[in-house]
Design a protein around this nucleic acid. Structure first.
Lengths: 215, 215
DNA sequence: ACCTGAACACCGTTCAAGT
DNA sequence: ACCTGAACACCGTTCAAGT
């Protein structure tokens, strides 16, 4: 592929290559130079497609969030439609983040003002408004749900970055722990990123309970 | 100050200098080289105090979280003690993050397995246990509160990083917005980092409501 | 219009050497 | 023991030049 006036790749190709690096080597490895190299280009060529690294990251975020706001509730007619709708959007957001290793670092690395980000915010506010909350409370509730999902993902990422410590060698007596309750909850996997789906959903359910109770 | 076997500064001095750079120039500006320069040292000298940049950041996190777990409930005897206790710890965590610009990027940049991080987790779990939740539920509840506070701070940081857009020039007719509810809630300041204290506390209250209702 | 290559001002970290 | 200086393999971005 010789240099020339023919565009050899698309913006989408670049975003795809960037995601591949993100998922395999982490957020810090997503450099302009690495992405360019993966595509067989020089770093400077990328500046023909995106004006800055930040613009590339914004495009990545938009792709990550594409479709989240339109997430369907599926087939659980037991609950009111709006409650399933909130769950569907929140679950889709969580699933997108969980499905792309390193993506929470991407999401928290800069502004979240893209069209898709706003779609997600709007969808959540609309669902809470349907549930009977006033305009202001619905906006606050949507914000709280976004915070909960993003915060949980950030804690998961922190857990994933934690080097697993080898258990202390057996001794005859134990120092009393300063964190007995935290250690007793280790089997839940909350701080190792190994919590099951039900565990993850629980907190969101409780938040929604509390938010709806204010209606 | 000549080079020599006398230790000219302390680890605390380095952490302080790093925080100054963090708050004035942002997380990305906290480089080993910049911190060293601020102290009049060469970059390599810092490796006498900390084995890596990550170790310095871990020390920063520990200092940031120092005392949060011991936050006092203050003088609001209207509510049960444990509820005020949850609020006190959550508010202290939020206040620490809000009081140090850029600190949420620090907190989400790596593992959160320090002694002080665990103190915060333990304090929250203990408060929920006092409130009557079972061991597992208390652990999940504590985790949810940490996620809420960190997630809200992450959204605040994203808002702070968003370039404020100049309002569109007045036109005779308006395109119907795709995000009417989101835009109608702009006065709350949720997406500009300008929300007031009551607004920030509201989400946390609703979460705690929902968590306690499961007891 | 698209791309290369050189360059600038950075980065974390290692290593040999100085006092 | 503490610190410097040189070095290595990186970074984002700009700019002149090539096709």
């Amino acid at each position: 592929m010789k240099p020339g006036p023919r565009r050899s790749i698309s913006q989408a190709d670049i975003v795809d290559a960037a995601f591949e690096i993100l998922e395999e080597k982490g957020f810090a490895a997503v450099s302009v130079r690495a992405v360019a190299a993966a595509l067989g280009l020089t770093p400077t060529a990328l500046y023909t497609y995106f004006p800055s690294k930040g613009a590339l990251q914004a495009a990545m975020i938009e792709q990550l969030l594409a479709g989240v706001a339109e997430a369907d509730a599926g087939s659980e007619p037991a609950e009111p439609a709006w409650r399933e709708r909130i769950h569907a959007v929140a679950a889709a957001l969580r699933a997108r983040i969980a499905g792309h290793a390193g993506s929470i670092a991407l999401l928290t690395s800069g502004p979240l003002d893209g069209e898709r980000s706003r779609d997600v915010a709007e969808a959540l506010i609309a669902a809470f408004a349907e549930a009977g909350l006033g305009a202001d409370e619905a906006a606050r509730a949507g914000h709280a749900v976004r915070a909960q999902v993003i915060g949980a993902a950030a804690l998961d990422a922190a857990a994933a970055a934690t080097p697993e410590q080898t258990p202390a060698p057996q001794t005859l007596w134990k120092e009393p722990s300063r964190h007995p309750r935290l250690e007793a909850s280790a089997h839940l996997g909350l701080d190792t990123g190994e919590a099951d789906e039900a565990s993850r959903r629980w907190a969101l359910d409780r938040l929604i309970d509390g938010l709806l109770a204010s209606a």
